[in-house]
Structures are given as structure tokens and as C-alpha cells.
């Protein structure tokens, strides 16, 4: 794949295939952690990091171990355990050697094991690879990184929207999550406008 195509994959992952607003992955952290800008940033950084790392590990496992041996039915099981193990490992390493990073991302890491965005990205890049043989390891990693950045963009945008919601006068039964979801609906509307933009740009 050429650099332009990789750029296309990256941009598409952020804009047209936004994991939260178009594919509904990771709605839990999206609603839960987006109340403040700093927590939104921390969570997205942790998710991006784990997404790239998980794809970097699961892609070779699937392509070189599971698939040639006809064990692709173990995909879900192996992937979720690998991701869980990886998150634990990263947490231990950060705790021991990188205190400042751990202080910033530490509390978000254990949350990510059961985040469907991470498992989703590892499976979707393999789907894409199966349909299009030029979509290899590099493209998968770029796609995972783009998905993480897309997650970040959606979270940060939404944190801004939610700060405004705090001050608004809202009907009793809409208070809390319902109005948040309506706001999310409007933010998702804005992402509908990106349809086809990546093909047009490149």
C-alpha cells in the first residue's frame, strides 16, 4: 500500500468510520468519561495506545498461528484473553518504570479490557484484510491508530458539548443521560457530512 492509501485509511478511520459516532463502539466510556475534558483526553489516549498495541499483537497471532492451523474459531477467545493480558502487562510496566504516564493513564487502563472498541478494531482490520489482500499489517496498524484518534476527536468534541449542557435548563425527565444521548445524536449528525470526503480528498 502506498503512503497516500495509508493516509486514506487513517482519515477514513477518523471521519467516515468513526468508531463511536458511526459504529457505536465504546459507547460506555463515551457517555461515562466525557464529562470533563481532561478525563476524556486521558481515556482516549489510553484507548488509542491499547488499540494499536492490541492490533500489533493479535494481527500476527491470527495470520500466522490461528489461520494456517485452521483454528480461526478460537479468534474471539484468544483475542479477548490477549487484550486482557496485554492491558495487565502495560499497567505493570507503566507502574514500575513510567510513573508520570501511569499517573495520567493508570486509572483508565483496567477499564479498557472490556471495551468493545478495542476488540472491535482487532476484528474489523482482519475482516478488511480478508476482503482486500493489499490491506496488510501496516494498513491494519494505521487503521487502529486512526480509530483511536477518531475516538479522541469524538470524546473531546463531546466533552465541549457537555460542558454547555451543564448550564442548560432541561426538563426533569430528560435530565442526565437522556439529554446527553440527544446531544450525541446531534454530534453524530455532523459526522454524517463526512461521507465520501476521503475518496474525494485523495
Amino acid at each position: 500500500m502506498s503512503a497516500t492509501q495509508l493516509l486514506g485509511v487513517f482519515l477514513a478511520a477518523i471521519l467516515t468510520e468513526n468508531y463511536i459516532l458511526c459504529k457505536f463502539f465504546g459507547i460506555c466510556p463515551f457517555l461515562g468519561v466525557s464529562k470533563k475534558l481532561d478525563t476524556a483526553l486521558g481515556m482516549s489516549a489510553a484507548v488509542t495506545f491499547v488499540m494499536v498495541l492490541a492490533t500489533a499483537v493479535t494481527w500476527p497471532i491470527y495470520t500466522y498461528v490461528l489461520l494456517p492451523n485452521g483454528m480461526d474459531y478460537l479468534q474471539t477467545l484468544v483475542f479477548i484473553l490477549v487484550i486482557a493480558g496485554l492491558v495487565q502487562l502495560v499497567e505493570i510496566i507503566l507502574k514500575k518504570y513510567m510513573h508520570r504516564l501511569y499517573a495520567a493513564l493508570g486509572i483508565y487502563l483496567p477499564l479498557i479490557t472490556t471495551n468493545c472498541a478495542v476488540l472491535g478494531v482487532t476484528m474489523l482490520v482482519l475482516d478488511k484484510g480478508a476482503q482486500d489482500s493489499s490491506f496488510g499489517y501496516a494498513a491494519s496498524l494505521v487503521n487502529a491508530f486512526g480509530a483511536g484518534i477518531g475516538f479522541l476527536v469524538a470524546m473531546v468534541m463531546f466533552a465541549g458539548v457537555r460542558e454547555r449542557l451543564e448550564a442548560a435548563d432541561i426538563p426533569q425527565s430528560l435530565k442526565g443521560l437522556p439529554i446527553t444521548l440527544v446531544a450525541a445524536s446531534l454530534v453524530a449528525c455532523s459526522f454524517l457530512g463526512f461521507g465520501g470526503i476521503v475518496d474525494g480528498l485523495l
Partner: peptide, 8 residues
């Protein structure tokens, strides 16, 4: 496991 950080 998200309980702590989650505002929901």
C-alpha cells in the same frame, strides 16, 4: 471495572 472513573 469502570465504575470509579465513570460519571454515568
Amino acid at each position: 471495572p469502570m465504575n470509579e472513573a465513570c460519571a454515568k
